[in-house]
Each structure stands twice: as structure tokens, then as C-alpha cells.
Design a protein around this nucleic acid. Structure first.
Length: 830
DNA sequence: ATACATACC
DNA sequence: TACTGGTATGTAT
């Protein structure tokens, strides 16, 4: 049957566009008719033209590949074959069949949720999404060729009666939480792949299950809330014949063409079912519980590894499960007939390339490995080799830290630069909000653009410190956008999509200790209620035994998940072993800050000369204090900003840390620009409850800046921190340059100097507030709040003498965003 | 490090 | 009225 869509049709048929009937519920359709409709709906559109272009690119890639293939000699192939065989032997040796991996997947998830909540939809073809794009369709609609990732307007042509329901993610998320609670009972370490899908390792559960009494394996049918007390039972029915969600399978065309949702239902009530101890029973039990709890069905695959389990979960979809026995024979047998496209990770393009080499099933894969090893990259053919042997992950690993975060938006053509910039800003605001929620900072900002011809472009900028606020992100994104606009010359960018992404996250211990220390510092002087609030906030957001050093990099996600799992474990009272590393929740903030100060002093109070003091960055001051002075430093250094111990002797690493602390430390004083105000309101509008605490927090951070300055100044005076101390070492005494106005200051009195800087800052701020056209002071309009913050910090550092803090004229003036606000900090201070 | 492509849901 | 959005990863430079 299959035959896919690609090569078989000689006519320049777009394999990219044709119906993908790979999925459950798509068997036995009139593919030709459907494809014709898809084609006529698309032909001539910009989208179509772009797809055509991309397909040609793929074809070229394949051509190249074929050329390469033609040049391969027999000897080379033999050699490769030997290499492959050796690797096969190794892989065979490491084959692990001891795990029971389960892949669970909700059936037509979004559609099923909507149908559950709106019985009207039950017997009708429907899909979730919009006229532009569908997320999923119910099985009824699939009969018409309507499927996920298909635009709604085409789906409507295929099925004029199709009902399209808008997505309701909050609802899906809530259901997702429900099913995950059940997952956790079988594998607390389960790995969610999306809202409706997860991998679980049932191995341990199954071991324990063997000794479980029946009572622990007994689960009740859901008692209808309406008939609560009355109909106690009616156990006359075969339990497994009951089906609480007739919704889905009424119209299920596949698997059992005419068994509309095994009815037999009659009453609900105290009926229950006892599940056995086998893996099949355990999984069936899990699915049963999901259905009872959510009125939605799931399918599952059981196999010795994730790769196979995934394929298996599709086999008896919907509302079914399939187990592949844990023997090499069963696995190999299963693999042989498996079309490569079914394997997760092999998509349209890989399939097409493989097909071109005569590979369509995994058995071919095994036969052609020598060839494949010569035509594909190492990682690619290694993967293919494993697939051909039926190998995959045998252990489920915990969700890792996210690596990027992004927002993108599609809209109708946007060509005016001004609108593009304001859209960009909007995206940055959204992104900053999300970053804030997870307390993240990242160094790389990427702008994504798609023009009206669907051509996608991305431009990235990597900063030397992590950013997270609107201003910081926008500063970078705006530059990237401007460059693109400029490059496009006189023509405008005609955009249909814009996106902003942040990646290269800085490890969170670079910013948490800062908050902590400053708060601790404040606590020494204040004892009002705002502190307690703040403390609470800390606990919610970041709190966990940081100062003791464990798990310094656990992400918010991980912690949230860990917390959830702990709760579940407690609920289940099946206490195995507590996760000790998460034991302490909120720690004494004041104390650890004091410790920090103490150790800071200890580590750095030897005076030294600053002969080799570097000038280009605020940070190297510290470098001078350690390496420059030939001090023997211990394994860890104390950050002068956050007072945290940095576990390194590498000064570059240390400097980077401080750099990040400095950038993280600064928070814009208040409302420099209208947009700042907007964004703050925006951020706080999320949760009322947080509003108060949030504003307190902002308050505190305000103060914290001042306090920080104070700390640094004191440290300077005491010569504990920097050692750079030009005051005593420099031949001619200090030369102080204001980082704001960039003018050399006459007085060498730090107090006087600081007063001057403050004045400068105030003027700058006032200027910003007024309306800004030309600055009253030196660095014209282009100083942003962030820069001012840094200036505040620098004003402190400047007091370390010779601070000819980089000349103003030479550095950035060339490239100014005209009227578009501030430049990146980099350009001013680096 | 950057850009682009592929893949998955 | 006209083809998503979010994340990860591979490939190439």
C-alpha cells in the first residue's frame, strides 16, 4: 500500500505538498483526489512557489548525492562495509533489552478535548485551529484527508462541512497536567514530549507491581457526577467494554472499520476493574485511568526502547496499545518491514534522499549501510545504523534545561520600517516577559524574518553577557532589524513574519546570588514587611538551597517538575527515596550574604600594585587584583558584585561572571521611556497577586543599586576588593572620568566624583523624560536606561583611578539608529 | 559564532 | 480573505 507520495508520481509532483497519509486514520483514502484539491488550492500562491523552490533545493542535494555515489569504488564500499560490520558488532554487544519503555500518546488530543466539551461536535468532522492552520483533526475529518498542519481553507475544500474550532491551550494544558499525574505513578521520571505525549520507563514499576495486592491494581469507573449516589452498581457489564468517550471512535475509520466505539455502556457507578501484573495490564490500567479521569483516550506502545515504542504507539491507534516483545528476534522482525518514514527523526527530506538510494524500509537500511555511511554525515549514518538494528534509548532521561526561548508572529504584509520596529519591540516585550517568568538570561539574540515570499532569514548577535529585559533584547533585535532594512536598500522589507529568540543562556548561578546578596545586604539595615514579601518572592521564584552549592543550575522547569513529582509521591505515599537534593526550600538570605561579604574580604584584602591594570572593561580591575598582583588565589574567587564564590581560578571565567553580575545587577531606575513603563505594566498584569510583591521587588532593586555602589566604594577605600587601587599605586594620582559625560574630573575626591556622576545621570534621565532630541551632555540621545545603569556601576569603578573609560568620540558614533532609540550597551562600554 | 535546514508536535 | 509557533538539532561556513 503505502508508496508514499514522492517519487512514484513522475510528474513534477510536489512531494512537499502532497498529502501525508502516514498517520493513523488516514488509510484507504482517495489520495489522488485529495492531492488534486490540495494542488489546485495552492498552485500559483507564493507559498507554493516557495515550496517549489525548496523542493528543487532538495532535488539538487539528491543529485549531488547521486554523483557522489557514482564515484564510489567497490573497494571503498568494501572498506566501508567492514567498518559498518564492526560497528554493528559493537552495537549488538551493547543491545539492552531489559527495559520496558512505553510511549503514550493521546488520541487526536486537541480535537478530542473539544469534542468532549462540546457534544455537538461529536459526530461531525472537525479540526482545531484556524482557517490558516490546523493543529489536529478528529478521525471523522481525517476520512476527508483533513489533517494536522494543513491550512484550514484547504481542509474546507476537502471537507466543506468541516467545523474548525479555535485552539484553547489553557484547556489542553490543564488536561495535560491531569494525565501527567497519572504518568508519574508509573514512572516519576517520565519524559513529556508535548502536552499529549510522553515516554515512560515501566521497568521499575513492573518489578514492584509483581508484589502488589489486587487492591492496588483495582481501579474504578468514574462515577457520573450527575448520578452520584443512586446507581450503586451494575457490574453486569464487561468492564473493558465500557467506553466513556464514544466521542472519538464513532467515526474511526481505521483499525476497526465498523466497530463504532465499543458501546455496551449502560450505567456507571461503583463498577471497577482489577488489572493484572503484566506489562500489558499495567499499561492498560494506565490508559484506563486516563480515560476515567479525562474522558479521553490514549494509545500506547511498549517496547525495549524509545524508538520502537514510539512506532508501536501508533500501531493500534486510536485507543489501543501494542507490545513488542523484548527479544532481538521480535525487534529485528518488526524493523524489517518498517518504512523509514515512520521512524521519529526521519522526515520528508531524509525519506526522499533515502528513497533515491532505493531505501524505503528499515530492512533496506540495513542492506545499504555501507553506502549510507559514505553518503551521509557521521551522526546521520550512525543514527540510521541504529535504526536499522532496532536500537534506541533504553532509559528515559529527565527533562533538560531549555536551550532557547522565542516568540514569533505571522501577520499580513508589513512593509513600513516604523511598524516593523514597533512590532519587533512588541515581540521583545513578550519574550522578556517569558524570560522573566523563568528567570532566564541569554547572550544570543536572534531575529527571524520571513518575507511575503516565504523566504526565511535569521540574524543573530551574541553579547558578552546575558540579557533578559525588554530594553536589552530590543537593543539587540533592533540593530539586527535595522541592518536588514538597510541592506535591503531602498526597497522595504516586505515581511509576513517576525520572530525573536534568545539562546546561550547564562547559568543561573550568575544572577541568583546577586539578588540574594543584595537582599541580604538590605536586610542588615531594614526590617520592614516588604522584606518578608520579597523573601517570599525569592522563595517562589528561585529559592532553594543555593548557597550550599547543590544543583546550582536547576531550571525553573525542573524545579517545578520536581515539586510536582514530590507532591505526587507524597500523595501516593509510596515513598521510595526522597530527592534529597531538593530538600531545603527557602534559605536564610541574610546569613549567606554576610558570609559572602566576609569571604570576599578574606580573599582579596592583600594590597597590590596595578601596574598592569587593563582599561577596556570594568571587569579587568579585578583581574589586576588577582593575577596582576601575583596573588595566590584559592580554588574559588569571590565576586565583588554578588559576593558569591566563583569556583574557578580562571580569570577569564571569573571576569565573565562579574560581567554578568554587573549586567544583571543593573535594572533601570524607573521610567525613562514610555515603552519602559508599558512593558512593566504589561509584565505585572499577569497575576494580580504578584503585583504587590513585584513592585516591592522593583523597589528593592532600586535601592540595591545604590547599596551596591556603596559597597563597592567602601571596598575600594578599604582596599579589600580591588587592589587595583590607583590611589596609592599610581604615579600621578587618579584621573577620574565620568562615565556619563565622559569628561575628566578635577577632583580626586570620590565623594565629589560620585556626586558629579549622579548629577550627570539625573540630567540624562531628565533629558530622556523630556523628549530628547539633543542631549545636554555628551553622549547624545543614544544612551539607554541600561547604559545608565551601567554608568552607575561604572561611576563606582571609575573611582579606581586611571579610568579613562574608553574614549567617547572614537567608539561608536558611526552607527546610530536614527530616531530609533538607544544602541546596545556593547557599543558604548566595550 | 552564524545562517539555514530539517524535524517534531 | 490564502500555509502556525515553539524548540532542538544538524549541516555548512
Amino acid at each position: 500500500m503505502e508508496k508514499g507520495v514522492a517519487s512514484s508520481k513522475g510528474e513534477g509532483f510536489l512531494s512537499r505538498m502532497a498529502l501525508n497519509d502516514n498517520k493513523a486514520g488516514m488509510e484507504g483514502l482517495d489520495r489522488d483526489r485529495i492531492n488534486k484539491i490540495i494542488m489546485t488550492s495552492s498552485k500559483g500562491s507564493r507559498f507554493y512557489e516557495n515550496e517549489l523552490k525548496r523542493e528543487q533545493q532538495v532535488n539538487q542535494r539528491i543529485e549531488k548525492m547521486m554523483l557522489q555515489k557514482a564515484q564510489i569504488t567497490e573497494q571503498q564500499l568494501n572498506k566501508a562495509q567492514a567498518q559498518v560490520e564492526q560497528m554493528v558488532a559493537e552495537l549488538e554487544r551493547s543491545r539492552d533489552l531489559s527495559h520496558l519503555i512505553v510511549h503514550v500518546d493521546m488520541d487526536a488530543f486537541y480535537a478530542a478535548v473539544e469534542m468532549r466539551d462540546c457534544p455537538e461536535l461529536k459526530d461531525k468532522p472537525m479540526a482545531v485551529g484556524s482557517m490558516s492552520m490546523l493543529s489536529t483533526s478528529n478521525y471523522h475529518a481525517r476520512k476527508f484527508g483533513v489533517r494536522a498542519a494543513m491550512p484550514g481553507f484547504i481542509a474546507k475544500k476537502l471537507c466543506p462541512n468541516l467545523i474548525i474550532v479555535p485552539t484553547n491551550f489553557d484547556k489542553y494544558r490543564a488536561v495535560s497536567e491531569e494525565i501527567r499525574e497519572i504518568f508519574a505513578d508509573y514512572d516519576p521520571q517520565f519524559q513529556p514530549m508535548s502536552l499529549d505525549e510522553a515516554y515512560l520507563d515501566f521497568t521499575e514499576h513492573l518489578e514492584q507491581r509483581q508484589s502488589w495486592p489486587e487492591s492496588s491494581r483495582t481501579h474504578h469507573f468514574r462515577t457520573s457526577s450527575i448520578t452520584k449516589g443512586e446507581d450503586q452498581m451494575d457490574v453486569s457489564l464487561e468492564p473493558e467494554q465500557r467506553d466513556l468517550s464514544p466521542v472519538l471512535f464513532e467515526d474511526s475509520p481505521s483499525s476497526s472499520p465498523c466497530s463504532p466505539g465499543s458501546e455496551a455502556d449502560g450505567a456507571s457507578g461503583g463498577a471497577f476493574e482489577v488489572f493484572g501484573t503484566s506489562i500489558e495490564e499495567a499499561v492498560r490500567e494506565m490508559r484506563f485511568r486516563i480515560e476515567q479521569k479525562t474522558t479521553l483516550t490514549a494509545s500506547a506502545g511498549i517496547a525495549p526502547n524509545t524508538m520502537i515504542a514510539k512506532v508501536c504507539s501508533d500501531k493500534n491507534k486510536p485507543n489501543g496499545q501494542y507490545r513488542l516483545p523484548s527479544t532481538r528476534e521480535a525487534v529485528m522482525d518488526f524493523i524489517q518491514r518498517l518504512p523509514v518514514r515512520k521512524v521519529s527523526g526521519i522526515g520528508k527530506v531524509s525519506e526522499k534522499m533515502l528513497n533515491a538510494l532505493g531505501v524505503s524500509s528499515c530492512s533496506h537500511l540495513g542492506q545499504q549501510m555501507a553506502l549510507l555511511s559514505m553518503l551521509f554525515s557521521e551522526t546521520a549514518w550512525h543514527h540510521l545504523l541504529e535504526v536499522s538494528l532496532g536500537l534506541g534509548s533504553t532509559h528515559i532521561q529527565r527533562q533538560e534545561d531549555r536551550k532557547s526561548m522565542s516568540t514569533e508572529r505571522t501577520f499580513k504584509e508589513l512593509s513600513k520600517a516604523e511598524e516593523q520596529f514597533s512590532l519587533c519591540k512588541e515581540l521583545c516585550e513578550d519574550l522578556a516577559g517569558d524570560m522573566k517568568k523563568e528567570g532566564l538570561k541569554g547572550k544570543t539574540v536572534t531575529l527571524k524574518l520571513k518575507n511575503v515570499n516565504f523566504e526565511v532569514k535569521s540574524r543573530a548577535l551574541t553579547l558578552s553577557y546575558g540579557v533578559s529585559t525588554v530594553d536589552e533584547i530590543f537593543a539587540a533585535a533592533k540593530d539586527l532589524l535595522k541592518t536588514e532594512i538597510d541592506n535591503e536598500g531602498p526597497q522595504p522589507l516586505r515581511l509576513r513574519l517576525m520572530g525573536v529568540r534568545i539562546s546561550a543562556f547564562v547559568s543561573s548561578d550568575d544572577k541568583k546570588p546577586l539578588q540574594r546578596s543584595i537582599i541580604g545586604f538590605l536586610q542588615q539595615g531594614k526590617t520592614d514587611s516588604s522584606q518578608r514579601m520579597h523573601q517570599r518572592q525569592e522563595g517562589v521564584t528561585w529559592g532553594r538551597g543555593l548557597e550550599t552549592g547543590e544543583e546550582p543550575k536547576q531550571s525553573f522547569f525542573q524545579r517545578a517538575q520536581a515539586k510536582r513529582l514530590r507532591l505526587q509521591e507524597e500523595n501516593a505515599s509510596t515513598q521510595e527515596e526522597g530527592h534529597g537534593e531538593n530538600a531545603s526550600v527557602i534559605t536564610s538570605i541574610g546569613t549567606d550574604a554576610e558570609e559572602g561579604v566576609g569571604s570576599s574580604t578574606k580573599a582579596h584584602n592583600s594590597p597590590c600594585t596595578a601596574s598592569d591594570l587593563q582599561e577596556k572593561d570594568p571587569v579587568p580591575l579585578v583581574e589586576a587584583s588577582t593575577s596582576g598582583c601575583g596573588l595566590t588565589v584559592s580554588e574559588s574567587l569571590t565576586c565583588p558584585v554578588c559576593f558569591g564564590q566563583v569556583e574557578t581560578t580562571d580569570l577569564n571565567v571569573f571576569n565573565k561572571h562579574i560581567d554578568q553580575c554587573l549586567s544583571g545587577a543593573s535594572r533601570k531606575p524607573n521610567h525613562y521611556t514610555i515603552s519602559d513603563t508599558e512593558s512593566e505594566l504589561d509584565l505585572e498584569s499577569d497575576h494580580k497577586e504578584c503585583e504587590v510583591m513585584q513592585s516591592n521587588r522593583d523597589d528593592l532593586q532600586e535601592h540595591s543599586l545604590d547599596s551596591l555602589q556603596t559597597v563597592l566604594l567602601i571596598s575600594d577605600d578599604n582596599e579589600t576588593l580591588t587592589s587595583g587601587q590607583p590611589q596609592s599605586c599610581d604615579d600621578n594620582g587618579p584621573v577620574l572620568i565620568c562615565p556619563v559625560c565622559q569628561l575628566t574630573q578635577d577632583s580626586d575626591d570620590l565623594t565629589v566624583f560620585n556626586r558629579h556622576v549622579d548629577l550627570c545621570l539625573n540630567q540624562e534621565v531628565l533629558h530622556e523624560l523630556r523628549g530628547h532630541t539633543s542631549s545636554p551632555i555628551n553622549p547624545p540621545s543614544a544612551i539607554n536606561s541600561k547604559a545608565i545603569d551601567r554608568a552607575r556601576l561604572l561611576s563606582t569603578q571609575a573611582s579606581k583611578g586611571k579610568t579613562k573609560r574608553r574614549d567617547s568620540p572614537s567608539s561608536p558614533p558611526s552607527k546610530k539608529a536614527k530616531g530609533l532609540g538607544p544602541h546596545t550597551i556593547d557599543k558604548f562600554f566595550r
